[in-house]
Design a protein around this nucleic acid. Structure first.
Lengths: 342, 342
DNA sequence: GTTCGAAATGTGAACGTGCACATCGACGAT
DNA sequence: ATCGTCGATGTGCACGTTCACATTTCGAAC
């Protein structure tokens, strides 16, 4: 009513005065403390509503030394489907739990770039951190900064620096490989992801495990960079050799590039060569031919990351943290090999 | 040295004591005030380093009532390539300018969902807001909340509620359409985006403008939802009619679905029907056939959004805010029509 | 040596909230 | 009637920083 002063947001003291109570009572209403008379509570709430009171986060953070914020560190690769989906899920889950989310994407994968990004997050006194940049050097940076907040990593193999949460990459890769073997393929080539990505490592391991247990001889894998562009070049290269009947690409984008190269070279998929991808991006169902691939539930992963973080913040650090099982999606890019050896 | 107390982060007073100066002097070092003797400054910096001092953001925010944070509101559609790329660019640019970024993705496009997301951001007392959810109802929500911070919108047509920044959708759509017309197509069908997306609206408008100025008769456009899935169904439908020789899809994903449907129906692209997309996602170059499309520089858009926001925060609200020009990328999904009328 | 102004530094209060503790009143048991 | 207990509310301070203003220091000019 008598707001003759300049524009200053109303504080709990203003509300208190208008409601005829002490500021502490208002504070109690805010944190809904048990011992408060319903009538006073209502009166305070009414006043708040009337004057448009909004709690000041900074003041609260200062006194409680809790920021109510969790940080996300992502590689720029978030332009990829999976990480983005996870990030979205994290944001929604965090908001539901009353947390804010501060995201930082690191522009370069150099140690300086990584450290800069981490510093930026740490300075915000985040309470928890989710890392979606599963490269070893990122973990090195984390260790070197000795970050002391709960930390969850997505899509990585268990690294000691962090609690990691992931779709079981090895199992997924084994499914894909076994599918090809069961169709009768014996000469399978793997187009892998970059060496220092733990996801790439996991998929490679699964592939190798399955090949070994089927006692098949190995064609040296090709190391790629996840892009369709690379897949295309690798595919052109491979088209020259033809010492294989199936390709297992470490992600759908590279698979797409490979399909492109094969189409150009006149190699028919799946009649002459089968191709399998990984991730099941929404577009994969509409590649030509529609891609057989391994589906990962990225959103579920994001939600679990938040759950894990919150439980750790609450001190109950023994939540379910098993790997999420992937799922094989068979479409039309795989078929038995021509000469059907097996 | 004598940190016998519990773990409490050192404050400027602690630093001051150790350096033998007043807390205000330390504060001056922090904000590098001009009048401070280099020697004392160095001494203070040394102590800071030694005790691992980190400024407390909350305290600073409380007293200055500035949060140093900008908010991003995105639709879940951020799983799409464009928005994600822009978000990343915003994060990098904001960090360079010393700002934090708090992102909220709205889970549902219902009015409640939108308002909930906005409230969540406003409660963090953000200093500026970038909205990447160019639906009219989002702007309605913004208006209804009478948000009072600088606001920039991406990918939208000029809406009065906000300063908008965009790639010129109309020009892009005209380029795509003109390309088809110049090849000799006369019967072109447009598979559009959802009605209340301003981007979809812009592309539709550009298409209609160009068709009218070439004096061509119109096939009623199909209204889609941006997904490859929809494109596929629309493509199957269209395959039955064949009263067109070219399709202009409002984005690359839908174009992909259309290619899929046509491949299944045995319609050869581009020999029988030409297809054009929009966005130039990295995969578009590897569709089969490689897709002719309109490239947008999403990262540039993100950077400009931050620049615009910062200039507005600084009071100089007259920065360049012209539309970014898109670029036509001709690949192999377009060719002259069979009967070559023109 | 005195004076003066500018440079360098110090002092105290404020920002808005939560915490620890104090106070007040009512009600039941003795 | 007295005391203790418990529910409901109030009081004062602390959090770590910046701001406005006060004070000291220093060098140069007289």
């Amino acid at each position: 009513m008598d707001a003759e002063k300049v524009r200053r947001a109303p504080s709990i003291r203003d509300v208190a005065k208008l409601a005829g109570v002490s500021h502490q009572t208002v504070s109690r209403v805010l944190n809904d403390s048990p011992s408060i008379k319903p009538a006073t509570k209502q009166r305070v709430l009414d006043v708040m509503n009337e004057v448009g009171y909004r709690p000041n986060r900074a003041a609260r953070a200062l006194v409680t030394s809790r920021s109510n914020t969790i940080g996300i560190l992502t590689a720029q690769t978030t332009a990829h489907y999976g990480p983005t989906t996870s990030v979205n899920a994290i944001q929604v889950a965090a908001r539901e739990a009353g947390y804010m989310v501060s995201t930082t994407s690191i522009s370069s994968l150099s140690p300086e770039g990584i450290i800069e990004g981490l510093e930026h997050l740490v300075e915000q006194s985040i309470e928890g951190l989710v890392v979606i940049a599963p490269q070893e050097r990122v973990f090195d940076a984390i260790r070197s900064l000795s970050i002391r907040v709960p930390l969850v990593t997505l899509d990585a193999l268990g690294t000691d620096a962090a609690r990691s949460l992931s779709v079981d990459q090895i199992a997924g890769a084994r499914m894909a490989t076994r599918h090809l073997i069961e169709l009768g393929h014996r000469d399978i080539v793997h187009v892998a992801g970059p060496r220092d990505w733990t996801e790439a490592e996991g998929r490679m391991r699964g592939f190798l495990d399955e090949m070994r247990s089927a006692d098949l001889s190995l064609i040296p894998p090709v190391l790629g960079d996840w892009t369709a562009q690379f897949g295309y070049h690798a595919g052109k290269e491979l088209a020259g050799f033809r010492d294989f009947t199936a390709v297992f690409a470490a992600n759908d984008q590279m698979a797409l590039g490979i399909l492109h190269a094969f189409a150009e070279a006149g190699i028919r998929v799946p009649e002459e060569v089968s191709v399998v991808g990984f991730d099941d991006i929404p577009e994969a169902a509409h590649f030509w031919p529609p891609l057989t691939t391994v589906r990962q539930d990225f959103a579920e992963l994001g939600r679990r990351a938040v759950a894990l973080l919150l439980s750790e913040l609450a001190g109950e650090s023994d939540l379910d943290h098993a790997a999420v099982r992937p799922e094989l999606i068979v479409r039309r890019s795989t078929a038995p090999p021509r000469g059907g050896r097996s």
